[in-house]
Each structure stands twice: as structure tokens, then as C-alpha cells.
Amino acid sequence: MHASRTFRITMTAVAVIVSLLFLAPVLWLVASTFRTATETFANSSPVGWSTLWPQHWTTVNLSSAIDNGFLRSLGNSIVVAGVTVVVGLAISAMAAYALAVIPFRGRSAVFTIVVLSFLVSFEAIAIPLSQSFSDWGLSNSLVALILPGLGNGLVVFTLRQFFLGVPPSLAEAAKLDGAGPFRTFWSVYLPLTKPALIGAGLILFLFQWQAYLWPLLIISHSSLDLAPVTISKAFGGFSTDYGRVFAETAILAVIPAGVLLALQRYFVTSVASTGSKE
């Protein structure tokens, strides 16, 4: 028992230190939001409390961000990422269900193509794709921003892996109860793979949340700009508003972190709910 307790304390200490290391840059970013860029640079070295704690609190960075339309582009980002997560998850989960559960001819070929699809990086095809989009009259629209994010090979892949892990006996039991394939999908597979669905949603979400090149190419009205593009516009030819960059980057980082924290309980309770499996 004694050895196991030392082990546990050591592991907990390691976990705390690692998470502090992960948190420090975020704290620095948040601190830099509430002080002038000059103060941030003046206190970057040597490291002390003043590195992570502003000496003179100010909200000029936040108001500069708001004045430059950051709230509007943040709203665009939220809409685009939100729609992508909902629609993308629906498409991908159904595709993954087919690939994992429903036997059909050429299933492994389809799966191979899905895997290959995410080997080609999006940047490699962005310029020609943007030309096709403008030929189709789609440039400068939310649809143009959302469409490329919907089909995501990685998401289909991960959900397929988790669906394969669901015991077939449960699906058979559902079938005996008279459930069709869609019913089985909805009431057996989805509830059992909630953490995986959250992870898959995160992939879809981050694709749009960090999207930079694509919106830059396809959007020319600043009213439709996504948040990362607005941030990069702080780097002008003759001036860089670093304080604004810090503030906007902090906001952009805090939102997904907050959403994940809210969803954290699914990772914890899942053990109890799936403990009965097999």
C-alpha cells in the first residue's frame, strides 16, 4: 500500500507541474491583455511576478480590439464554427457508422479514400479551390466559409474507430428489440461514444476557429472576416498594435477552453455509464 501511495503522490505532483507549464503561457497572454504592449515587453525578462501580473491595469487593448470590429469577426467565427460542428458531426457520424457497422461492397476502399483525404493538406489545394468557389459565385458568403470544413476525413476516421469499439452484442440486442439501423445508431452508438463525439466536434471546431488562409482568399468584405484574419490585420505596414493582438488572441484561446471545461463532465461520467459494457 505504501509504495502505491508514494506512486500516486508522485504522479499527482507531475500532473500539477505539467499543467502549470501548460497554463503559464495562457496566463501570460491574459496578463498581457490588461497592460500596454510596452509594459509587456519591458517585463518579459528577467522573469518575476510582473511577467504574469500587470503593474498598471488597462482596458485599452480590449477597446482597441472592439473598435477594430473584433466582436463582429468573433461572431462570424462562432457562427461558422458552430454550424460546421453541428452539420459536420451529423455527416461524419453517419459516414463513420456505415464504415464501422454496415457491411457493404467496397467498404474498405471507401475507408482508404477517407484516410487518404486527410493526407492532402488543405493549404495545398486552397488557391485552386478558391478559384472554383468564385467561379461558382460563392465567394464572400458564410456558405463559402462553412463548406470546406464539413467533410473531414479525420473526424470520420476517429468516429469509426470508436464505433468499432462498441460491443456488437448491444447492436444485436437493439435489433432484437425491433430497432432499425438508424434507431441503433441514435440510441446505442451515439450515447456510448459521447467523449469521442466531443473530440470529433473539437476537430471540426478548431479547423474553423483557426482558419486563416481560406477566409483570406475567399472573403474580401471585412464584415465577413473571421477572427484570426482580423488579428493578423493588426500587423500593418507601418504599425503593429501588439496589445490588441494579445487581447484578441487571449479571447480566441479562452472560448474553446471554456467550452471544453463545460463538457469535461462527460469525460468523467462516461466511465460509470459505460462500465456495464461487456
Binding site: 467523449p195 469521442a196 466531443i198 473530440g199 469525460f267 462516461s270
Partner: peptide, 8 residues
């Protein structure tokens, strides 16, 4: 972590 939760 999602996978770990599925280990009975």
C-alpha cells in the same frame, strides 16, 4: 481519455 473511459 475518451478511449480510456471505454475500458471496462
Amino acid at each position: 481519455i475518451a478511449g480510456l473511459n471505454d475500458v471496462p
